[in-house]
Design a binder for these strands. Structure first.
Lengths: 342, 342
DNA sequence: GGTAGTTTGTCAACCGATTGCCACCGCGGC
DNA sequence: GCCGCGGTGGCAATCGGTTGACAAACTACC
């Protein structure tokens, strides 16, 4: 019993205490401020002293305490990435790209999700804000007003949303859409439908507007069906209206909806692509698992993630590096399109 | 020029400065320490004063600075989640479960990945360690030695890895495996193969060991093929050895490998499930997109993520809540198995 | 040798909270 | 009238770094 009482707190509680610059100063025989400068102002200090301090630091297994540094400098060294739904495969590559650049630049990434709710989103942003140097908001559902308010507290970068005075990363949807439409036109399709996503989605509107611009000039008619949830289920639910519309090809707001629609077709005995051609957006993981594999308009979200973080870091440390590469979408031809049924 | 010099820093730089407890103290006419107590030691202060302080705080739109609090208390209020590959769909639900509980408990989650490399993993863990209260390591590739070292610096919870003296979340693979084997036995399969994952993977070994225990008692032979990368490609590459082995059914280390193998079979003109039955692990997103959809042994990773964070928080704030629910796997029957070819 | 100029390192204040210790207040009891 | 006490609130140290101002030491030049 005595053993247990002693052992437990000792093993659970008494963790190794990290070394501080004061420890290093003592070992190296200098003052703490000298240690601080030796460690992050190379050259400010005599080379020999610097060397001695670095050795002391190494021997003590020193690691800088980010919290302690954040206090006087105001820089936390972490960036926040806020998205609507972490489990949505659309964002996988975006997260990965963002994570890569963040680590590369010596920052730390904090990830959070808003569960498709504007309320949760603003709360989460508030919670994150004090401990990050800046925030990337992906496909935000917030109002312009809220965004502006956030932007005046910490640097902000938006992905898939445009707002003046706030840095923005929006892929150029036109190239992919044009190629997809050309492809459908060649196959003889004359009447299309766009299966729309959530009403608050900037991206859904942008895709629809672009289709609306581009389809007529190719001699095709196009109608909007929806809005619907950007999920498998949302795609399934579109089938009734797709059938009723009499179109020969559907472009869905995203791959998830395209796959949902495809499966609904299969359940209903509609042959894809023979009776209906389907095209998605984003080229998510798994969109080539289906039979037929989904043709899709790929959004380079990995690049978008990278660009967003680059831009954010530029804003955080005032290095003017705008990094204004264009992020062009691209049509990926697979098996879900065929000649229009006559 | 004077204008520009004044304007630029003003608009770019002069963000809203957050209020501190000193501001509140001034407004409420008390000392900062009283403010601190009013805000987080309810009752310690006269009710009227407390009220006044809270109103002042609200009117100033006060938000506590987590960094400043972390310094004296040593508690940062954030937890780290480290996994080998963020884009691996296996972890999606785990991440989501972890994120949910973390937010629920008022903590913040930091996500990082190690890119399947032990070296990157230890570096990343080191980088995260000073700014988190504890760490969850998922499917770690680190040696026991390294893990023990980390564990004595900050609370640690392992998922998919066992190590004495460190809290561990390992799903119980046996139930799912037993059901899968029963199913295959019923279909007349007598010789199986296990398509192994990475050599350093504890989970791969655990699954193999369990198969090794359970198959013979059902009158089936089983061989291990691999190790291989836990990816589509890794699954594809297994086909040659699967064919050579003459087995009638394959259980792959995970769904990704199962899907890779399936696609390789399709390319090679081998009918699945007629000529070869395939079963995966994990029930990842997309494993039901294929034709045939993959039968799989589902691991409740969302629960694992939740349990891991609960456990970690218990360790962090010494609330003894062990939360020792068992996480049983479950066989999900879909279309990739059929009677053994004679 | 004296003076100016340049390194190099130290002092001390500060970032925004937390917390142990103490002082003050009013009150009741003896 | 004095003492003790519980309830409030303030003082000041502290966490671990950063940084402007300055002093000491050294260099160089006349």
């Amino acid at each position: 019993m005595v053993d247990a009482e002693n052992a437990a707190p000792a093993s659970i509680g008494a963790r190794k205490v990290p070394a501080t610059i004061y420890d290093i100063a003592r070992v190296a025989g200098v003052s703490p401020s000298t240690v601080s400068r030796a460690l992050n102002k190379p050259g400010r200090i005599n080379a020999k002293t610097e060397q001695r301090i670095k050795e002391a630091a190494a021997s003590l297994d020193y690691r800088l305490n980010p919290m302690a540094r954040a206090l006087p400098t105001g820089r936390t060294g972490t960036l926040g990435l806020l998205l609507s739904d972490i489990t949505n495969p659309v964002y996988f590559n975006l997260v990965r790209g963002a994570e890569r650049v963040t680590a590369e630049e010596g920052y730390t990434l904090v990830l959070a999700e808003s569960q498709e709710s504007a309320e949760v989103e603003i709360e989460t942003a508030e919670r994150l804000l004090p401990s990050v140097d800046g925030l990337v908001l992906v496909s935000t559902r917030l109002a312009d007003e809220d965004l502006r308010e956030l932007a005046e507290r910490k640097p902000l970068v938006l992905v898939n949303r445009e707002l003046d005075a706030v840095p923005t990363i929006v892929p150029d949807v036109a190239p992919g859409i044009r190629d997809a439409l050309d492809h459908l036109a060649e196959l003889g399709h004359r009447s299309l439908a766009f299966l729309a996503g959530p009403p608050a989605s900037f991206m859904s509107r942008l895709r629809w507007e672009t289709l609306l611009d581009e389809a007529p000039s190719r001699g095709m008619t196009i109608v909007e069906i929806g809005p619907g949830a950007p999920t498998l289920e949302g795609g399934r639910e579109g089938l009734r209206r797709v059938r009723a519309s009499g179109v020969t090809a559907v472009i869905a707001y995203n791959d998830l909806m395209a796959i949902g629609l495809l499966r609904a077709c299969q359940d209903a005995g509609i042959a894809v692509p023979e009776q209906l051609s389907i095209i998605g957006f984003d080229d998510i993981f798994g969109s080539d698992f289906t039979t037929p594999p989904i043709s899709t308009i790929r959004t380079p979200l990995d690049l978008a993630g990278e660009a967003a973080v680059h831009r954010l870091i530029a804003a955080v440390d005032r290095s003017g590096n705008g990094d204004g590469r264009e992020l062009a979408t691209e049509f990926v031809l697979r098996g879900s399109t065929a000649a229009a049924r006559s």
